[in-house]
Design a protein around this nucleic acid. Structure first.
Lengths: 383, 383
DNA sequence: AAAATTAACTAAATCGATTTATTAAACTTT
DNA sequence: AAAGTTTAATAAATCGATTTAGTTAATTTT
């Protein structure tokens, strides 16, 4: 490429009587190159609509119409339709999704954005969504926000650019504006796990308050006099509602609440575990702990195991979010299980009504609030 | 759209002296519509290269060159480069990745295909890969194959069509041909977890045989006389190597192997657990069990907990793959931990050399075999 | 000073679809 | 039979980039 001027100028000198100037020669050379490239690419590339059209001696337009099932509508004759369909079938032609996206603005991709896909709850839900998505002919992209605003915003912009068709969002606290923007721009959005109290959005939640209330009541009914609530300092709905449920139950039975808030930044760290240990030492009257999320429970169990062995023999533990560990642990841990399958089903069905509408922001808003189930296990059995 | 003929024919009757025929009128109408559409779209769409070029009174080509940092190379003057860069910066222009993909054939997306993303091992690795990918400016797509050939093939074709730039693959047993095809077609592929013995591929593995041997030896050194090996009937390398490691150790110490193979289809089912229970009943001499994967261990622990309570007091358990459950469980479970971070690092670095090469199939094949670590815990402590 | 080269920039082709505008021929109306 | 409609199909614009093949003017070489 770089040396083509030299080459052609060499030729020019040899045949100067034939060519009036460099330009003509260069033009010839380039025409040849173009043809050459076309040929050499032919063998590599998958067939395009153009190839099919050429092969069948039919226009690209017609092939495209038939391909998209608009044959009848566009009054293409049955013979032509049949001929095209047969050929497309025979070479197993699949339209290039990128080209299609560029033209249509749709991509067939949905984004599932959560705090951390490696967390049991999110991973299981992701797996469910993956299958549901494929069932509706959508590909799924999963990503983790760490509940961090900057990261969430970046991810939204990133995928927005890629023309994804919709967002399943566990929003971090500071992205209300971004969510509003998406909706205004007619991008389908469904929130779950937590929401913005001031913003009417399509969402699938669970009744955190009710679940936390019943669970706390369960502890009290089991005879625990001093249940503590271990949570994070996150101020989002899923957390505040759980806290309120706990407080409401304590109030109902005239007990004194005892709450430990662990900074979100420390939930996976040793410092976080230290806080739980200190709390237990400083509050020896605590006869049961209600953990607000599964990762807190894991930290708690570790602390108990290594620093307060035997504590569980006479005291209780209860957790929000179930997982294999809690089922198998000894003692098995009483847990509030979110209805994963049901959440997934609702999420996907809301999304489908949105993506199938031409003005998603004008679709009547759908909000689901599902019940979580308390699974009673050994950890809250008073002997 | 459908009724435009009627409309225009109405106009035609009114002004018949002005227009010679329907066609001209239609043409006018359409020209108007086109202009109208252009205007009405302007406000909606993000700026394109064309818009920038128009704004700056510079050709699209020049803008594109500068955008891609080829300004110097293409001998664009410093003033123009600066002007373009400043403007691009000021409107925060980001090129449309779809259009770019269509032209370049690259997408900036890597696929991470595993058995089941909701499984702890895969989910944690996915999380690591997600961050590594973003660091290199790649988006990650995760998907689950269920170790099923048809599903794997479908997924490969699906993403191949979307021009993904590379595949991280845990291959199911019957897709050797597809993997070969990818490589032949210059698609970057890196295998992990398991491989095809007959196929030289870029891969990151762990030394399953060695790890299983050492782990078994550990059991024997702890005084267990009759360690059983609980595995699946999957015939892929990761499983056969683990089995061989176990057998080699038993042979070395002159012990009799005792192996339970659970059909892959039953690994998550009650029937699978039943098989373990039956095995334990029929082989009362078994004083320890070595589970070949984390999900088998979970089933095993559940069986022990509910059907053989107390069994763990005098017998041992050891597992391939670590997770939170095993650390926190009572007794905590001795586990072979794969070096997740290290696996991720190698996977990504191999992928980067592949995607940065113009002929990935000609890049010298890289194969890493990493050591797994045996984490000794309470479950194999002989008292 | 003619010829060749370089600097600086642009027109147009291209990627592979979708969709709008248009047309030629065959039918219907009036 | 002229005018209008319908049928069956197509040409060309478009989505938004990248990249090849030019072009013109200025500079350098011979």
């Amino acid at each position: 490429m770089q040396n083509s001027p030299d080459k052609s100028s060499g030729v020019y000198q040899e045949n100067s009587y034939l060519f009036s100037n460099y330009a003509i020669l260069a033009a010839r050379l380039n025409r040849f190159r173009r043809t050459y490239n076309r040929y050499s690419q032919m063998s590599k590339t998958r067939p395009s609509l153009k190839d099919i059209a050429k092969e069948l001696n039919i226009s690209v337009t017609t092939v495209s119409f038939v391909l998209n099932g608009k044959g009848r509508e566009k009054k293409i004759s049955k013979e032509v339709i049949e001929r095209i369909e047969k050929y497309i079938e025979s070479i197993n032609y699949k339209p290039n999704p990128i080209a299609r996206s560029l033209r249509t603005g749709r991509s067939g991709i949905l984004v599932f954005m959560v705090e951390d896909i490696s967390n049991y709850f999110f991973a299981k839900l992701a797996r469910i969504m993956e299958d549901l998505g494929y069932k509706h002919d959508y590909k799924m992209i999963f990503c983790s926000t760490e509940n961090n605003d900057r990261r969430s915003k970046e991810l939204i912009h990133l995928f927005r650019e890629r023309q994804v068709d919709g967002f399943f969002l566990i929003p971090s606290s500071g992205i209300e504006k971004e969510v509003k923007n998406l909706i205004r721009q007619q991008v389908p959005v469904v929130l779950f796990d937590r929401y913005f109290p001031g913003l009417e959005t399509n969402q699938v939640m669970i009744d955190n308050g009710d679940a936390a209330f019943s669970a706390t009541e369960h502890l009290i009914n089991q005879g625990y006099k001093s249940p503590a609530f271990i949570t994070t300092d996150v101020k989002q709905t899923q957390m505040t509602e759980r806290l309120e449920g706990y407080e409401k139950a304590l109030k109902k039975y005239g007990l004194t609440p005892n709450i430990l808030k662990i900074p979100f930044s420390e939930i996976h760290s040793a410092a976080g575990k230290e806080l739980i240990a200190t709390f237990l030492s400083n509050n020896p009257e605590t006869d049961s702990m209600f953990f607000a999320t599964n990762y807190l429970t894991q930290s708690g169990l570790e602390v108990i195991k290594y620093k307060f062995p035997g504590w569980l023999d006479s005291n209780g533990v209860l957790t929000f979010d179930d997982n294999d560990l809690f089922r198998i642990n000894t003692p098995s841990i009483t847990a509030i299980a979110q209805p994963l399958e049901e959440i997934g089903k609702h999420l996907m069905s809301m999304m489908m009504t949105l993506v199938n509408s031409s003005k998603p922001s004008e679709v009547a808003i759908q909000q689901q609030c599902l019940k979580a189930e308390l699974i009673q296990r050994e950890s809250t059995q008073r002997h």
